[in-house]
Simulated assay, not measured.
Amino acid sequence: MTAAEFQAELDARGLYCPEPVMLLHNRIRDVAPGEVLKVRATDPSTTRDIPRFCQFLGHELVSQAAQGDEFVYLIRRGA
């Protein structure tokens, strides 16, 4: 993923549920609607929690990938 694909980043590596989603909830507010936030996490529960977060709050989960022991998400902020 290149920097051109996202406008902001959240590093939640080393944090465990519920911290990654709590930080995501705060960080997504700093991103303008339509912009993309890249999230990096190591907690496997984010594979369940982040898609639900996006669905519940109307954000688009652009991509979700596992890279070694990290999980990387691109989230487009909804209106």
Rank of each mutant, 00 (worst) to 15 (best):
A41Q: 01
F53P: 00
S63C: 06
R76I: 10
I75Q: 02
F53C: 05
Q7G: 04
A79N: 15
Y73A: 05
Q64P: 00
F6A: 01
M22I: 09
G58P: 11
Q7S: 12
G14S: 08
D43H: 11
H25E: 14
E9K: 11
Q64C: 05
A79Y: 13
A65H: 07
P18H: 14
F53V: 05
P44Y: 07
G58I: 12
Q67C: 07
A79E: 15
A79W: 12
A41C: 05
Q55G: 10
T2K: 10
H59Y: 14
Q7E: 13
V39M: 03
K38D: 01
E5I: 02
A3V: 08
L23I: 02
P18Q: 12
A4G: 09
F71Y: 13
L24P: 00
Q7C: 04
I75C: 03
P44K: 13
A3E: 08
D69F: 01
E35D: 13
L57K: 15
Q67D: 12
A4M: 06
T42D: 12
L24M: 03
D11I: 07
G68K: 11
T47M: 08
V72A: 04
V31L: 04
A65P: 00
I28S: 02
L15A: 02
V72Q: 03
T47P: 00
P18E: 02
D49F: 11
H25V: 07
T2M: 08
E5A: 05
A65M: 06
L10A: 02
H25D: 13
A65Y: 03
Y73D: 07
G68M: 09
R52V: 07
E9Y: 14
A4F: 07
I50H: 10
K38S: 11
R52A: 10
V36I: 09
T46A: 13
T42Q: 11
R76W: 12
G58W: 14
P18K: 06
S45I: 00
Y73C: 04
G78P: 03
I28C: 03
